[in-house]
Design a binder for these strands. Sequence first.
DNA 1: TTGTATGCGTTATCAC
DNA 2: GTGATAACGCATACAA
Lengths: 322, 322
Amino acid sequence: MVSIKDVAKKAKVSISTVSNALNGRANVSEETRQRIIDIANDMNYYPNTMARNLKVKKTKTIAFCFSQFDRNFYFQIIKGINDCVINHGYDLIICAHHSIEKFLRNGFVDGALVNDKNVSDELILSTASKDLPIVLLDRELKGQHIYPVVVNNYLAMEQLVKELIMKGYKKFSYVSGIESTQDNIERFEGMRDTLRDHNITFLQKHYYHGDFTEISGYQAARLMMISKDIPEVVICANDDMAIGVVKAFKEMGINIPEDVSVVGFDDIELSSILEPHITTISVPKYEWGIYAATILFRVLDGERHVVPNKIIAQTKWRQTTR
Amino acid sequence: MVSIKDVAKKAKVSISTVSNALNGRANVSEETRQRIIDIANDMNYYPNTMARNLKVKKTKTIAFCFSQFDRNFYFQIIKGINDCVINHGYDLIICAHHSIEKFLRNGFVDGALVNDKNVSDELILSTASKDLPIVLLDRELKGQHIYPVVVNNYLAMEQLVKELIMKGYKKFSYVSGIESTQDNIERFEGMRDTLRDHNITFLQKHYYHGDFTEISGYQAARLMMISKDIPEVVICANDDMAIGVVKAFKEMGINIPEDVSVVGFDDIELSSILEPHITTISVPKYEWGIYAATILFRVLDGERHVVPNKIIAQTKWRQTTR
DNA sequence: TTGTATGCGTTATCAC
DNA sequence: GTGATAACGCATACAA
């Protein structure tokens, strides 16, 4: 590996002159600069990133901690983050949670975004610092140098339910995701509270327990059938379950949306590919990524009191509702 | 950021003793070792990765160059790579092509995998070295310290066509991908040669020009219709186009597979979701990732003359063929 | 305009 | 068993 020393030797100057020339500083004559640049190119010289980082304490690199490579919901988010990072002249590295200690704990990166449930709250709390602000996409955690950028589930659900009520729907059922997750809780409460505000009480028996998987939605729909409790509209905590619900109803000869309507959440790719196209709440994934990265850069640029907004999601009306 | 110096000071020993203790070397008494470890934990000390790398010239990190975050075909591959890298006690960073110079050129990583058409052949040729072997997933490039791990398109196509012929198919059409791509060429030649070997000449007029997109497949099928040239089977250079072909035929009231059969390549998720499920050549993506990373580690472990095999893909017979 | 010297945090060599 | 010290490649304050 050719180092600054090799270039200096070949150019018959000192290493500092090489450094100055290559870093565009004023204190070097134009002709020596050009000569040094040519020689450096010639020798295929690239400054050693680690040695430089060790010195300057800025890496111009952002880490994105992520390991759920099997859920393609996230890839538009990555794209947004990547684009934003590049635009700011930084580089992005994506690393799984195993690598956090290695990459985050010691100035390897200037900031991080985390979207990985495998990373514990404690790890985040103990890692975030003035030198390493962290933006969270998968949870709302309070703490110094920590900036959650999450979807406003409650508001999106509120607006959806309001519109459904306006369309005349009165009998709602809900298929939950994993109970303990914040997403599920907020989505459910958004529905329940909005119904209450419109004098519709949501009965516990219309709450079906799912776990965000298609099969759990499928089973919930069959359960509705067995208990002869088909509502006017089934609201699912995500699209996967909505797909399962639709599948079950279709198999049982129940027409959608004539006999029952179905709504999902997330707007995954499949929801507008499968027939019928599913009405769902669309999370603007690309923009989410952009915004999350933007927040990080505002912090890195020294802005005080950065308070992120929540991401606004909106209903996409499609074929599973009237 | 707490450094080894801080730990040494607190433990009232020299930094070398701290280093020795923490790195499990023999020349330090068990009690001082334990005391130092405790203090280090206590102070939340983590060795600075960059300083260490600068010294030892091994980073235990692998880079995967990739930027096509909008094609979910690749994510199973990433998962395979990631799993393999973790298993070897290394860490994986994924970086876009913009960052190659920064991360690959100067000992930031011990090896790299590249699956990014944006990275030029020249860049790869000039970057690969004894200190940085590179495994290629997206092209077959010959060169020192370069190891292509690609799919055996030709063989897969040969086997597919043989079976189709055995099933009685005689009239074949081909919808091409982008002409210049190696994938397209190999897939086409695999078909053409196999037909020839079975005394079936493939006429140029049955070659339809596509570009790997769904719409180009759709248009090719309409063109077949207009020219009244519906074959017994349409072989597409990838699944996206096969999906387009199927869509067009369905719209035109042509029955699949009764009137015409359709075959794709890749086995993307959609091919077994949309109705009818598409017969296609399945690329074992996860295993591909595992194998590519394995090749890299064999090189890193000092094995001489590593010669990668090609990835074997196999036909998945589904509903679009008889 | 150019060169010398120092230090970033670590590991390794070699005294003690 | 322990501690100075050099070196990794670079940037920079300061001397020339």
